[in-house]
């Protein structure tokens, strides 16, 4: 009998939670990173075609 769908999904979710925790703990303090996006022309932060 193979591994059930529930077990696979729970394993995936727990792996995801672990990666989130590792990333958060390994990241610099939030106040240390500036967030400037003055020339953004799209939600992802892409610049305008006219400036390229």
């Amino acid at each position: 009998m193979g591994i059930s769908a529930r077990k696979i999904l729970f394993a995936f979710l727990l792996s995801g939670l672990s990666l989130i925790a590792i990333d958060h703990l390994a990241s610099p303090p939030l106040s240390a990173v500036a967030s400037v996006d003055e020339n953004a022309c799209a939600p992802c932060g892409a610049p305008c075609p006219s400036t390229r």
Binding site: D23, L30, V33, S35, V36, D37, N39, A40, C44
Partner: peptide, 30 residues
């Protein structure tokens, strides 16, 4: 994830844009 396994994503223009580079360096929870 790519950065975590050794790829330097900052070599690609998209990840040098202010929003994307901030997302990459910040905690995912930010």
């Amino acid at each position: 994830f790519a950065q975590g396994i050794g790829f330097d994503m900052s070599q690609f223009e998209f990840w040098t844009w202010p929003k994307a580079s901030t997302s990459l360096s910040n905690s995912i929870l930010a």
